[in-house]
Design a protein around this nucleic acid. Structure first.
Lengths: 333, 333
DNA sequence: ACATTCATTACAAACGGTTTCATTGCAAGC
DNA sequence: GCTTGCAATGAAACCGTTTGTAATGAATGT
């Protein structure tokens, strides 16, 4: 590969001039610029990014930590991040962490070893748990999806509690009173938030929450299927299931269907997230829209701001959600 | 951030010694090593990857070009790539190219500007179309999913033609004779291959192919819904639909359902790829399993081999597919 | 006691650019 | 005609590591 001095020699100028031809062509005379570019062309010269970045001490790269890249919701967020990254000439290193603290710690270290300029975290773990300095850590960090308003770094997400309450209220408005909850993993913040929101809606309508009617499992179709099976064999008087993700709801639909329920006549099921597939379920899924791509876009914008040195004092963006009414929840007579 | 010379000074040694403390501790005396490490610890020193990589002229990074990261199949392949990448200490830069030739060209250039050591392409475009030197180009390149046995670089994928033929034969074995084809984008190699395979199966069974019974659209649920709607309004004597992806099939199920078809009684529908959702469709989707994660794993392994200088003469791995029989295809009486 | 060997460690060059500062030459101003 | 100012360019330092080579000193052999 040709280097800058080869080009300089061929063009009869100094390396500095060649460098300037790329970084600020206006500094060169017409004729020199032309000569340099011709020489560069002939030698097929391309500046080594590695050398440039080394000198600049920046990588133009942002690390995205995703708990599971094969999850459609996360994939859509990454898609949004990507779009803004390209606009701003940043590269993305994507790391599928499997929600593993150790892998995430290594990820954060990449900033200190100059492999990435900053980190966007799609998981729930806050920076303070991933760095020995804890709260003092000043790494450019943005947390997406699971917004943590107490954190000292920018955050984007939705108001899970409010959104869950909205869905709860909708179910109540349709006449449902005995509602089972198919929750995700119990130790997740998002699970607790959505559960709290659901309880809020019950309290608001003076309906007592049935502590027994909660089943926890993984955030997946298989988890939803298992949870629903357990729930339906335990409680036979439910008229609706409040599922904490569309995937859980889809698993629940399968389970209910297999147990002979005619949907939505015998049982209403609501989802959460609004993944594309929900629209194509039978019955189509009533759910809460979460603006995944937009969350990604805002997250990357915040990262860009941070890297430009704009210390956003407290950027905790809560993006709006929306109730998506389809057929899987039915109005009781 | 502390640098190597700070550590050297504190430990009372030269920078070279500190460097060796990390790269080959056995070269140092017990006491020196201990002193260096203590100093490094105290200063919280971490070697700058940027400087290291610059010197090594390697990035330990592989670029993955994905036509659409939000597509579940691609996401699963990336997941497989990721797994092997981590094992081999490589980072992944993921680029969502939107199947855009220009973006892909820029991606390939990243190797020449030392931003990545090699490229894994999940799209169909071969390297020769993405580099001015065409066939002569010697960039480390692996093509996954759409295997191109004529290319001069390693390739992993499935035998689309054979797999499609297997599904065609299965439909025929279930008594179907009037089968509509819901194809993906017409200009894609994969579309042509799967169509050819389907025709192969008809020829084998002496069934004549109905040229009219093909509808092209995008590889998506919306595309499948549109294609199915067109197809069903045009041909009313079909007993089955051969869909070129699960997403198309899922869209087709919706369309058929909306037109009053009872599935699978009135119409059989087959998919392709075996994405997770297929199992949760109503009716559950009969499809062809494509080992997505494994394709990713093999692709990254091939990339590692290439980067280690093992010039694999002709590595065109064809991974096995499998017919997944579920309920969406019914046996005709 | 001196030469030889070997284990440690230091010195300095190299990686490929960018950037600061200095120099040159030419045009304009007095 | 001499100074001044500016545009164009070059020389050299610098970014933070790694590594080849040289130097040092202790241990060994004769």
């Amino acid at each position: 590969m040709a280097q800058i001095r080869d080009v300089a020699k061929l063009a009869g100028v100094s390396p500095a001039t060649v460098s300037r031809a790329y970084s600020d062509p206006s500094k060169l005379s017409e004729s020199t610029l032309h000569r340099v570019m011709a020489a560069a062309d002939e030698l097929k010269y391309k500046p080594s990014s590695l050398a440039q970045l080394f000198r600049e001490k920046r990588t133009n790269t942002v690390l995205v930590m995703v708990p599971d890249i094969a999850n459609v919701l996360f994939a859509r967020v990454v898609s949004g991040i990507e779009r803004v990254a390209v606009e701003n000439k940043y590269n993305l290193i994507v790391s599928d962490t499997g929600d593993n603290a150790e892998i995430e710690t290594v990820g954060v270290e990449m900033v200190e070893t100059y492999r990435a300029d900053g980190v966007i975290q799609l998981g729930e773990r806050p920076l303070s748990e991933l760095h020995p300095e804890g709260e003092q850590c000043t790494i450019p960090f943005v947390q997406a999806i699971s917004a943590d308003p107490r954190g000292r770094y920018p955050t984007v997400g939705i108001d899970d509690r409010k959104a869950a309450a909205a869905m709860g209220s909708y179910l109540l408005s349709q006449g449902h009173r005995r509602i089972g909850v198919l929750a995700g993993l119990e130790n997740r913040v998002v699970t607790q938030e959505r559960l709290a929101g659901f309880k809020d809606s019950l309290a608001l309508a003076d309906v007592t929450f049935d502590e027994v009617a909660v089943e926890y499992d993984t955030y997946s179709m298989a988890g939803g299927e298992r949870a629903a099976t357990r729930m339906l064999s335990r409680k036979d008087d439910l008229t609706a299931l409040f599922c904490m993700s569309d995937e859980i709801a889809i698993g629940a639909i399968r389970a209910a269907h297999d147990q002979g329920f005619i949907l939505p006549r015998d049982l209403s099921i609501s989802g959460f997230d609004n993944i594309e597939f929900g629209k194509y379920c039978t019955p189509p899924l009533t759910t809460v829209m979460q603006p995944a791509e937009q969350i990604g876009e805002v997250a990357m914008s915040l990262m860009c701001d941070t890297l430009r040195g704009q210390t956003l004092p407290k950027a905790h963006e809560m993006l709006p959600t929306e109730l998506v009414v389809r057929a899987s929840v039915q109005k009781l007579p």
